[in-house]
Design a protein around this nucleic acid. Structure first.
Lengths: 340, 340
DNA sequence: CTCACGGACGGGAGCGCTCCCAATCCTTGG
DNA sequence: CCAAGGATTGGGAGCGCTCCCGTCCGTGAG
């Protein structure tokens, strides 16, 4: 396959055109110090005139870096692709990356073939580091990346025993404070709609729910727990199911705002008033949470900070060569609105 | 910044270890012909033992290709990120790319800075070609890419006068056949919920709607047209608005299945039966269309084929160096279900 | 006027791979 | 048994850039 692009001018040609040496042009391009102002201008003009664009492959080869990081989504995430969480995270990563000059590359890993290809890509040095979206329990990719000594940061963790670097929110604490809040408002039959339980984050939120029930001296029953997959639809279904099992429910913690939105619909359909009959709390604090009727009380995840923290950890690992793992757990915050 | 990864073995070292020449190892890696079987095995073993991974920067520099293509989403698309269309397209592109050995890289361009950075990335030779998601009217990126002589293929076009290569569905024909179908079933007051009209595709669907009305001898009124942004919510709102303006509406063409789903909700809320009182047609034929109540009659876009066609065009341009523009318009198909 | 010193600048030495031609090795046919 | 011809193989010549060291020039002190 002949994929060559037509002859772009090279550094050398720019140098000749500006009547300076190769090194000087390189210095100008990377705006390093130690170039007289007049020279710099001359070089810049030559670059302009020739329409020079640095060849990144050559730079990468000589400089031993790629100036790019990958954000990988593995198959199970893919179904969450449509959820706001995803686009919010991508945005925050993009923001955090802007002044490093690195490109953010999203890649999809849906099969073994694709995983293999991505590994070759990453190990081949096309990215300096890898960010992984919410990894699921058995995902082998993080370890493969760690084995390849590629700087890697997970969003969330696969279990309590995670060694690869990660940034996570305090899901247990968030869920606990939400449920405590419900209990304080006098709710006595509190149900929860969890996320997919192969996600550690979903497990943690469930644990926080259980802990808070115990603390409040309320009884927890398995029938008060329904699983969803974070979609509005599954939230609606789960809520309907819960209502059928426990018509006396007066409080619900949903695993995400999207799920909570579905729960609200189901409650409305069942003729329950929110918050009078049933109080509802979401999780995440997406913009969505302020558009529901009533506006949603929810547990805020600091998404912007999560993105910043991930990039910071990644840069640190790149700096020192992935010799240590760092874990950051960010505090969550209960945002009280009209649904409780 | 020191982003160097620890010393991976090089081709040369593999060659030494297998007691062959550099060229032979290269041949084995790229599994080119002309290597004795015994030699090939020896080399493969050496690769295995040393854990060799080819350095892609070097390959890229020497081979003048990147073995990667970018899929760019510009800001206005970003809001559609959450729509199923997007993930379906990405999937189909991924499928179409599997046996070319190229990596698919999604990149986000949300600002001028990011556009500039992406251009440097692409012009710097880090990708062999660029795919652009549904471009909006004034988007300058396609032309910038064309100027840089980068193989580029758009999904959809910006106007009827598009020169850059693109793959599009026959939106006019699809809308026309949908509305004709409504007319044949005896509907007389047919409204439409369009997509964002700065998208040419949305304009085309509107045009098809108008043409079909004329053909059926029905009157078209501006008040029968409402604009949406492809979301379920906006579909619901648009439908409510239309019903208010024309309580006698008996047929609706929505700009997408998502919008149609919103319309269905609004109709239900208004106490209209579908299809008895009002017939509804969607556009796209997403899985969603079979989950609504009633199941949606819709205009099918051949997404898998769109993906395949985009990749095919891109490969052709890469092959011959972007000397010609190709346009492919794929036929759409009316899928009749229960909503008409 | 001479000498030391520091800021600018030039260009050699790779980075690790692909391309390609020349050299070498085997076969096969006479 | 020998030569011709195809199958294999080795390795030189880059690809375009960064790194870094040595040179050159101007300046101020002696």
């Amino acid at each position: 396959m002949g994929r060559r692009r037509p002859g772009t001018p090279t550094l050398e040609e720019v140098a000749a055109h500006a009547r300076v040496g190769r090194g000087t042009v390189s210095r100008v391009i990377n705006n390093a110090a130690g170039v007289k102002d007049s020279t710099r201008r001359a070089v810049q003009q030559a670059i302009e005139e020739l329409g020079y664009v640095p060849n990144l492959a050559a730079r990468s080869l000589a400089g031993r870096r790629a100036d790019a990081v990958a954000l990988v989504m593995t198959e199970p995430d893919w179904r969450q692709f449509a959820e706001p969480f995803f686009s919010e995270i991508v945005s925050s990563l993009g923001n955090a990356l802007t002044d490093t000059g690195m490109q953010l590359l999203l890649t999809l890993v849906r099969s073994d073939t694709e995983r293999q290809r991505f590994l070759e890509y990453a190990r081949g040095g096309r990215v300096d580091g890898v960010l992984l979206m919410s990894v699921h329990a058995g995902d082998p990719l993080p370890d493969m990346l760690a084995d390849a000594r590629l700087p890697t940061v997970l969003l969330g963790r696969r279990s309590g025993e995670e060694y690869v670097s990660y940034v996570d929110a305090d899901n247990i604490g968030g869920a606990r404070s939400a449920v405590s809040h419900l209990a304080q408002r006098g709710r006595r039959v509190i149900a929860t709609i969890t996320g997919p339980l192969d996600l550690y984050a979903a497990q943690c939120r469930l644990r926080g729910y259980e802990e808070a029930l115990k603390l409040a001296g309320l009884k927890g029953e398995p029938t008060l727990v329904a699983e969803s997959d974070f979609t509005t639809d599954s939230g609606r279904r789960a809520m309907a199911e819960l209502l059928e099992r426990h018509p006396d429910i007066d409080g619900v913690l949903a695993a995400s705002d999207t799920t909570a939105a579905g729960a609200l619909e189901a409650l409305r359909a069942a003729g329950r008033r929110v918050p009078e009959d049933v109080a509802v709390i979401g999780f995440d604090d997406f913009p969505l949470a302020q558009q529901t009727e009533p506006r949603l009380t929810t547990v805020r995840q600091p998404i912007e900070e999560i993105g910043r923290a991930m990039i910071r950890l990644l840069l640190e690992e790149m700096e020192e060569g992935a010799v240590a793992w760092r874990h950051v757990i960010l505090r969550t915050e209960l945002v009280v609105r009209d649904s409780t």
